[in-house]
């Protein structure tokens, strides 16, 4: 173990975001602050509408905050100017339908001008890692939802981003496919140990994947609590759910989360 203090990769300081909805100002994120260190897998958990995706999109430079600051690797984030070492996985299917599985996964390498030979090798490797062998030449339209999300994941990971932002990437999948994707993601992540900020409203998912859970309150979104998830790694996405430690932490966070769901309903 090293003694140097961990390096901070993402820092959010008193972040604020106000949306205009039908002429009225709605505070989506209010005074949110947290920090994520190198190699940490952090789940941002909260009821829907709590502003967790908004925070993620501000880190991703997709939307501009109304106040506060975001720093990635000690550099201030400028809206509209994507950061090279940051990768983003959408909730919605954003694969390019006119490109094959190969073409989608290799996209970032094409942009970067990676020579064809190396690109082919890396794409083939990524296709294999995602368990998509034999589907190289398929178009997204003929893939299942789970397979499309695997392609999405690899399309982002192939550029080897050190920081990974994920916006409920498995939110639209059925329970089984979701567990499958957890295993895929865990095995990929446990090899590379990227710094991950993973937005979800699914507590089970957060516990399965993350080292830390940042719990958001219902709107206006604030950081309500920070839980450490210290299950040993490598984790088994399915077996983990049967351990007493999992059940214990689940009920602890569930209680806190439940209050926010109730608030979200009455608001």
């Amino acid at each position: 173990m090293q003694n140097t203090p961990p390096r901070s990769r993402i820092e959010i300081d008193r972040l604020r975001k106000i949306f205009l909805a039908e002429g009225r100002e709605v505070v989506a994120v209010d005074d949110a602050s947290f920090r994520i260190d190198d190699g940490e897998f952090v789940a941002l958990l909260g009821p829907s509408g709590c502003g967790k995706s908004t925070i993620l999109n501000m880190v991703a430079t997709l939307i501009a905050p109304n106040g506060g600051a975001i720093r990635v690797d000690d550099a201030p984030v400028v809206p509209g100017r994507p950061i090279a070492q940051v990768g983003y996985v959408f909730q919605k299917d954003t694969l390019f339908p006119w490109r094959t599985v190969e073409g989608n996964i290799g996209y970032a390498l094409e942009l970067a001008g990676v020579p064809t030979g190396e690109r082919k090798t890396r794409v083939a490797e990524a296709i294999h890692q995602a368990g998509l062998d034999g589907f190289d030449r398929f178009y997204p339209a003929s893939l299942s939802g789970g397979m499309r999300q695997r392609v999405s994941l690899m399309r982002t990971l192939i550029a080897r981003p050190e920081i990974l932002l994920m916006d409920e990437p498995f939110g639209a999948l059925d329970t089984h496919t979701k567990l499958d994707m957890h295993s895929v993601l865990l095995s990929l992540w446990e090899r590379e140990r990227q710094t991950v900020l993973f937005v979800t409203h699914d507590l089970g998912e957060a516990l399965t994947l993350a080292d830390r859970i940042i719990l958001m309150s219902a709107r206006p979104g604030r950081v309500k609590a920070d839980f450490k998830v210290d299950f040993p790694r490598p984790r088994d996405a399915v077996k983990l759910r049967e351990t007493p430690q999992y059940a214990e932490l689940f009920s602890k966070v569930w209680h806190s989360l439940g209050e926010e769901f109730a608030k979200g309903r009455s608001a």
């Binding site: 959408f90 954003t94 970032a108 399309r155």
Partner: peptide, 20 residues
């Protein structure tokens, strides 16, 4: 979202036009 995805994957203005 396709444009955003391309940008976040490192596409510049011209590359967004050409590839998306």
């Amino acid at each position: 979202d396709h444009i955003n995805a391309a940008r976040l994957l490192g596409a510049g203005e011209w590359q967004v036009t050409r590839t998306v």
